[in-house]
Each structure stands twice: as C-alpha cells, then as structure tokens.
Simulated assay, not measured.
Amino acid sequence: MTSASSARRRARWPWVVLVIVLVLAALGVAAEFIARSVVPSTVRSLVIDNLDLPADQQLDVQVPGMMLPQLIAGTLDEVRLASDEVTVGGISGSARVTATDVPVSGGALGAAKGTVSIDQDEFSSLLDSAQLPVSRIALAAPNATVEGEVDLFGRQIPVGITVTPGAEDGDLLLTPVSLSLNGMDVNLDAVSGMIGSAGDTITQPQRVCIADRLPVGITLTGLRIEGTSAVADISADGRITVDQKLLENGTCPRS
C-alpha cells in the first residue's frame, strides 16, 4: 500500500512542477503586460510635465526589450519618444528622441539623442539673427536658397543665395555654394571684391547662434535638408532630468 502511494506521488510530482511553472510564467506574463501598460504612460506624463507641454500633447513612448528585468535592475536600457508635432524652446516640428540608461526611480539619464524635423517657415525663423537679406526661403535637398535684396551702389538689388546648412559648436552654420544678383549667376569669389563688405557678408560661411531658441541642456549637433524639411540632430545633457536650469532657454552674444 505504501509502495503504491509512493508511486502515485512520484507520478503526480512532474505535473505539480509543471503547474507551478505555468502559474509562475502566467504571473510573469501578466506582470510584464501590466508594466508595459503603466511604464510608457508614466514616462509620457513625466516628459510632458518637465517640458511644460500641453496635457493632450501627442507623444508616443516605447521601451524595447523585456520590461520586468529592467525594472528590477532599476534602469530602462532605452526609451524612445516620438511626436509628429511638438514645441520645445520655441522650435516646433516632429521629433524622435532616444534616451538610454533611464533610472526608474529618477535621476540623470545616461544619454539622449534625436532629430527634430522643421518646415521652411520654422527654418526661416532661425535665420532672424543672420546677416542675410531674407525675404523668402526655399528648401530643396541638400541646400536652402535665401532670397532678398542688398544695397549696392545706392540701389536695392535682388539677391539669391544658396547655402548648405550644417552645425558647428551648437550654432547653425550656413555655407554659401552659389549666388545670383539681379537674376544673374555670379562667381562667389569675385563678388567680395566687387561690392566690398556686403559681399563678405553674403559669400562667406556664417554661424548663426540659436542658443536662445533651445533649452540650455539641448545642443544642435547637425543639420541637413531632406526634401523640403530641415532635419536637426540634437543631443541632450543627461542631467536635464534633474537640473531645472538646463530646461531654460540659453542666450546668444549681442552683436
């Protein structure tokens, strides 16, 4: 009798183990599901609050990989943020940002990089402090063409300047590649000697400070024209999540 009971218990034991494993697996799946529901919405709320965005701001949040191990470790390996239309520091456009080593309990990020895509009007507003005659601007990859007028020999002459945008030390960099005066193409190298200091202004590479349009903790690292949009590469100081001063707009030197 004892031998038979022992045999039955031994027979049931693998099934008991299997049931326990399945229950634990189900609990793990449920916990992962809950984490995937709660964490992105929490991250979204924190970003909206910290950047002072509208409560109904469209902002998609993704956390790749298994969530539970990351939560247990206390750090999210990667968080991806995306919005088709957002305004940060006075610049509006669509944004894609990836943050790494994001502490669950709060603290500085490991790093954050991304892109912001802006239209022609928004790009034009970045040139407000540029020493260029801007009355109209058109973007066509890989360049931007600025049109306006320059004072030449006491007359206002129509000018068109085609530049390749870029970035240098956080500033917007405009490098002229072609020029037209009064509808005629002219040689860039010859213009400076023809019209003096005005020629230097429109034919030499020009840096445009945009620090006053961005939070201190965000730096422009690159800029290119894609189609009819300007795509800016940005990087963020990891301390932007803990230092309120890094969320304030920067300043530009007075000319």
Rank of each mutant, 00 (worst) to 15 (best):
I34W: 15
R9G: 07
S135D: 15
G106T: 10
Q70L: 05
L247T: 09
E149S: 09
L27Q: 09
K113H: 09
E78T: 15
K113I: 08
T164L: 12
D128G: 06
L223C: 02
I34K: 10
S117L: 11
T42N: 06
A35F: 04
P14V: 06
S83M: 11
D200H: 13
Q204N: 14
R239W: 00
G110K: 03
R224F: 05
Q57C: 03
P14Y: 11
V134N: 10
T87N: 10
L24S: 08
V231F: 13
S3I: 15
M66C: 08
V177I: 14
L152G: 08
G148P: 00
P176S: 08
S229E: 15
V242Y: 01
T98G: 05
V163W: 03
S178C: 06
A236D: 12
T2Y: 11
A112V: 12
S3W: 08
G148F: 00
D171F: 00
V16C: 02
I34N: 10
E147N: 10
L223K: 00
G196F: 09
V208D: 03
R10G: 11
L173M: 11
G196W: 09
L214Y: 11
T115F: 01
A35K: 09
L220D: 01
G222H: 04
G170T: 05
L24E: 04
R213N: 10
D169I: 04
I118E: 04
Q58C: 05
A230R: 07
V29G: 12
V63K: 13
S124M: 13
L139K: 10
L24Y: 02
G160T: 04
P253Y: 07
S3Y: 08
E78D: 03
Q206S: 12
R9E: 08
S178D: 15
P54L: 13
A25M: 13
D56G: 01
V97P: 10
E85F: 03
R80F: 02
Q156K: 14
L246F: 02
D56P: 09
T203C: 06
N50Y: 10
S235W: 01
I210C: 04
N182R: 09
L179V: 01
G217D: 14
V39I: 05
S105N: 13
M194R: 07
G110C: 02
G110S: 04
S235D: 11
S117Y: 10
D121G: 12
P54V: 14
T2A: 11
V21Y: 07
A130L: 06
T203V: 11
V186N: 07
E32R: 11
I240C: 08
T100D: 00
A141Y: 06
K245L: 04
P176M: 10
L173D: 09
V21D: 07
A232E: 05
L181D: 03
F153K: 07
G89W: 01
P215C: 08
A144Y: 08
E85P: 05
V17I: 15
V102C: 05
Q156G: 06
S135C: 03
A236Q: 07
V150P: 01
